[in-house]
Design a protein around this nucleic acid. Structure first.
Lengths: 213, 213
DNA sequence: TCTGATCCTGACCGTATGGTCAAGATGATC
DNA sequence: GATCATCTTGACCATACGGTCAGGATCAGA
């Protein structure tokens, strides 16, 4: 009760309310998709009147755009790990850990992202064509270097990246299916560990990663 | 022109129109999601008046349900390959080929399925709990047998299946992203081959599959 | 040719949704 | 404490959507 730090200042109010709205929006967009989500439901989840949403975000699309951009940002950040690693065992291993953790902690974000891309990226296509392309090329270069240095098999870096994205995000995007196949229970701490270890083991062995193993 | 075989009989008309509607619906549901799809747009794509859709499928949900059921059916069929195989190299290799081919030929279906699961399977939850659970357990048993026979490493069959689903379906569900990263071009015949080969190589080596290699 | 079943469709309806607005409340600034 | 900017919100509006329906067209069967 009353545990919310009193907003007090006007700036705090704005920040606080935007955060409430963005969190609610992410959840609702994830569960219903852009078309199925309603401003009224987002408002209810956020605990604010609908008109108040339109005060902070003029249109449904502007709110959605903001949600997707924020997710994209997090998505990219997860890969800083990649660059500093001495080899695939550390780099790809840590990347898998990081992305699995995102799947676990922010499944809604992952779903919104998946949905956006599945629908041909109507609002972030420009980001895909610029930032994502650059990012991907950078990471491909790192992988290629590892190959050239004999630290792993000559696997096509592009398809390897796709495999990494696919396997890690699957645990968020298809979490409901996984839960159903787990007797309706969310994965336990132990099961998440198993998942991470299995993915890492198969991928790292599969690409012939040599290093601190 | 006039290549459509004259419907003639009343039964043919029904079959023909249902097919037109289902194909249009799959496409539109894939592109817009259930919430974003409109009966009017489906009707336009099918080349029929909207009221005619409601003649064959009383509600939007009934149409959607039928689309999802059909997809689920194809999805399961892809795995008959699994059972007759003597070992993982043949079984899992063929399964990857089959599912990659589905991703390539029926990306819309894959997207509808992904969307349905992502939204907590509102219409096919019962199938997940029965058919999918049984199917999965059967396949897990096959994999476990291969492990027991020393034909592959002791990889958790469950997570291995998830990896297979994830990597293969990724090429359909995230096809737009892959296309963007391919200079805006769909994957060529050759690139599809590379994708398949990379996935098979990494997975089969990753699980330590022994056999006709 | 007649009868009944199936198919077709323009016009229509109720509702839900995104978005607007004007009037007021609250906090900041001096 | 007066003035101004920011925030709040119930009431409202136009539109788009899923769905209905009545009346007509087409075909099967006898």
């Amino acid at each position: 009760m009353a545990q919310t730090a009193r907003p007090s200042s006007k700036k705090d109010i704005r920040r606080e309310n935007e955060k409430l709205i963005l969190e609610a929006a992410e959840k609702v967009f994830a569960e219903a998709g852009f078309g199925g989500a309603t401003m009224q439901l987002i408002a209810d989840v956020a605990g604010l009147p609908k008109a108040n949403l339109h005060y902070y975000f003029p249109t449904k699309e502007s709110l959605y755009r903001r949600v997707v951009q924020d997710i994209f940002h997090d998505w990219l950040k997860a890969a800083d790990i990649f660059d500093d690693a001495p080899g695939p065992v550390e780099g790809i291993g840590a990347y898998i850990d990081a992305k699995m953790e995102i799947s676990r902690r922010h499944p809604a974000g992952s779903k919104v992202w998946a949905s956006e891309v599945m629908h041909r990226a109507p609002v972030i296509q420009d980001y895909l064509e610029t930032t994502l392309v650059e990012w991907t090329e950078g990471r491909m270069a790192v992988i290629q270097r590892w190959i050239d240095e004999g630290k792993m098999d000559p696997i096509d870096p592009r398809h390897l990246l796709y495999m990494l994205w696919a396997t890690t995000q699957h645990y968020a995007d298809f979490g409901h299916q996984i839960e159903t196949l787990n007797a309706g229970q969310p994965l336990s701490e132990r099961q998440w560990e198993e998942a991470k270890e299995t993915v890492k083991a198969v991928i790292l062995k599969g690409i012939g990663a040599k290093g601190a193993g």
